[in-house]
């Protein structure tokens, strides 16, 4: 059974391709993934906003035993990236040897293939981050 049906991916394209978040117009808090009710001030007044493409690695891991869909790709790096505006995103780190990663390392967003969902499934693209040199 495929867990990536086309509408499910299609809905999330603004987030997965261009880091579209939502900003509360009352208190200014930014949510990624976007929310339409603010956990901070309960306001429902939101606007769309794009996240900055640059940030630093807050913490990271090298996945060596993966869920079945990702077994082909091990080892790969997954990190929490703290963006320039303080919003955090979870992402793979690409274009870098795993043993070179460090907390605090500057990174930037790029579009990459995330994975193929089997023979008949969609090919899923999305953001990854790479080191800025």
């Amino acid at each position: 059974m495929s867990d990536l049906r086309v509408p499910k991916l299609w809905r999330e394209i603004p987030q997965h391709y261009r880091l579209e978040a939502s900003k509360c117009l009352t208190c200014g808090r930014i949510y990624f993934p976007p929310k339409t009710v603010c956990n901070n001030c309960k306001s429902k007044n939101f606007e769309k906003t794009l996240l900055p493409r640059k940030g630093v690695i807050e913490t990271f891991t090298i996945i060596r035993q993966a869920p079945s869909k990702y077994e082909l790709y091990v080892p790969y790096a997954v990190a929490v990236v703290k963006l320039e505006n303080g919003v955090k995103v979870l992402s793979q780190i690409t274009d870098c040897e795993p043993d070179k990663l460090q907390i605090g390392m500057p990174v930037e967003a790029v579009i990459r293939r995330l994975y193929d969902d089997g023979e008949n499934g969609v090919i899923h693209y999305g953001f990854k981050f790479r080191p800025v040199f």
């Binding site: 987030q15 997965h16 913490t59 993966a66 790709y73 997954v78 929490v80 979870l90 907390i103």
Partner: peptide, 24 residues
């Protein structure tokens, strides 16, 4: 699913992110 699992994170991967930050 759409924001963690899709990026290849595993449950022990999540624990590893927390553990590295804790150690640091």
């Amino acid at each position: 699913h759409e924001y963690e699992t899709i990026h290849g994170l595993s449950p022990e991967g999540a624990a590893a992110l927390v553990m590295r930050l804790y150690m640091h």
